[in-house]
């Protein structure tokens, strides 16, 4: 893996999933892999099971799962799906240009 510019700001994301559905498992795995590769300084990740905490889903207007909300650094972004499309994910998280390895399918 190549060298990355230092990301000073803390990276805060919140991931809404439904129980242990296949999409949920994949989304968590994809997100963790991304954090390892691109955010070595670590990221603050909160995983919320919408079936257990429906009120939180309502508060955040979560319609589909999985939904990832990037709370910091600004701007706040929402990404939905199992995060298997890495190109789009990096783009949405503002991490494009940092990517040196070819995207995984």
């Amino acid at each position: 893996m190549g060298k990355r510019p230092d990301r000073r700001e803390s990276f805060v994301v919140r991931l809404y999933v439904a129980d242990r559905e296949a999409t949920a498992v994949r989304a968590i795995a994809n997100l963790e892999a991304l954090c390892r590769e691109f955010l070595p300084s670590g990221c603050e990740l909160e995983i919320i099971d919408i079936l257990r905490e429906p009120q939180r889903g309502l508060d955040d207007s979560i319609m589909v799962t999985p939904t990832l909300i990037k709370l910091a650094p600004p701007p706040v972004r929402r990404i939905f799906g199992d995060l298997s499309n890495r190109g789009r994910l990096l783009d949405a998280l503002g991490l494009t240009g940092l990517e040196l390895s070819p995207p995984r399918p």
């Binding site: 319609m63 799962t65 990404i79 939905f80 799906g81 199992d82 298997s84």
Partner: peptide, 9 residues
Amino acid sequence: VQAGTFDLS
């Protein structure tokens, strides 16, 4: 942004 499959759960 859509990045992958999802459902309405």
